[in-house]
Nucleic acid binder design. Sequence first.
RNA 1: UGGCCUAUGGUGUAAUUGGUAACACAGCUGAUUUUGGUUCAGUCGUUCAAGGUUCGAGUCCUUGUAGGCCAACCA
Length: 560
Amino acid sequence: MAEEVKSLNFIEHIIEEDLRNGFDQNSLRFRFPPEPNGYLHIGHASSICLNFGLGLEYNAPVNLRFDDTNPAKEEQEFVDAIKKDVSWLGFEWDKECYASDYFQQLYDWAVYLIQSGKAYVDSQTSEEMAAQKGTPTRPGTDSPYRNRSVEENLDLFERMKKGEFESGSHVLRAKIDMNSSNMLMRDPVMYRILHKSHHRTGDTWCIYPMYDWTHGESDYIEQISHSLCTLEFAMHRELYEWFLEQVYDTSQVKPKQREFARRNLSHTVVSKRKLLRLVQEKVVTGWDDPRMPTISGLRRRGYTPESIRKFADTIGIAKRENLIDVSLLEFCAREDLNKTAPRVMAVLDPLKIVITNYPEGKTEYVTAENNPEEENVTYRELPFSKELYIEREDFKEEANRKFFRLKLGGEVRLKNAYIIKAENVIKDADGTILEVHCTYDELSKSGSGTPESMRKVKGTLHWVSIPHAKKAEIRVYDRLFTEAEPDGHEDKDFLEFINPDSLSIVEGYIEPGLVEAAAGERFQFQRIGYFCVDPDSSKENPVFNKTVGLRDSWAKIAEK
RNA sequence: UGGCCUAUGGUGUAAUUGGUAACACAGCUGAUUUUGGUUCAGUCGUUCAAGGUUCGAGUCCUUGUAGGCCAACCA
């Protein structure tokens, strides 16, 4: 077999070039740096797969680092959820790190910067500083405090740390260049006073370092070789490097920041802020609502880690804007589930069938394949009887030749059982069909080997036996938004495009063995789609979530 | 009156670094099928524009055009 030439993404090209230029492969090290202020979503999954994938590819360690520099927003709850999600995706981190572990080192370095005349305490309001900042096309002006003496700065900064000042009264700023074309270089804030206790450091600190000051130095402390982030940080790179330059020791690895485009998924939103709104405004039931593009939502929906990793791998990584069609994600789910999900029968919209020539009160068992994709196919027994449910849409009194299902006078195979023929219908006063009376061919039983059992009939239907079937709550999910890019309208709020039919709850009937299934177990309801047992489920009240429907070429024909 | 980034089929991503533009999804045909599933075969369709360098340009140069990002004591 010819070895497939693996194409590299632009990050891998950069790493390969570094290696060619003499960078030691053993010094390669990556990190995934979430802020614990929300739940991880499919966009993060892409970043996780990138960083941990690189670790696997180059046999390099990958740290999980919580960027926890803002106690106003961050909580332990999110730390726990993030760890769970990363593990569930199937990745192992080398070290579990926290930016807050570096607060002392960061403080010491800040003191060093003050001593070197590279940082100063500013005592203006944020409004005053904003006014001096200028605009992208107009340079800024110096703060009146810019030239405080080193001694005064040191004294003030220490007193900031000791808690002598109110929140917001002073900040520590890097002294760089108020005329820079890069706004971030116009004396960025390094520390702010925040009298707020931190989920890990408690009340030890009341000054907290800003992202730019923290991130690069944390990468340096951990000796991260390649620090990958999203495109909006591209302008931060110059500052990242400036900060690094102040403390860098040439015997150490100097981390390199590179930026990639965040992945956007159609028919949803991928932004923590917007997802938070969906939760707060109760559009969904929580962060793990199966309609959410969060990792926890996808998990509850029935997506497998494999399918998400495959998806991330397939969409790749680049620098241009993108909107990935959700149908690709759905394809990845089906591809994986097709191989692994046991086939079962469930009827979501029941229509009663009575087999008039079948003995009253008789129960017999038919044999069903668990999964035709299995290497060694296994089987189970299913009860069959005179009265059955089939799917309402599988019967029509009259239909054309393209309708391969049951119609009056027509024959159809009941999956794993007999061939039946529809003889007449019973309707109520409104004309709604209550029952379809059929006859069956006793010799046509599946697997019996008779010539009758080998007969080809055009359609095969799934069914359940009414006396044996169990009721189940089936939560049928659809796309959360009707628009491909709900947040792509400048004049309209994304919530205007919520799909009113994103969830419909139906009472269906499942084959009896299914009540034993445990939360998280995934199945294919034959001819319908993939479903998974919800955590709300119990043996008495089974609950299934629809992950994704089967490909439905009939729906396309029916449309025409 | 700025700076940075990006432009390849409908979508996403590649192209051995200047040498036949390909892979996946989506779409469309057909075959197989006791799931209108799966599988298999086939098919449609691509380098933002204009110049330039070169035997040869998606790739290099110039000039445009379009889109994104940058003025939080957020990350």
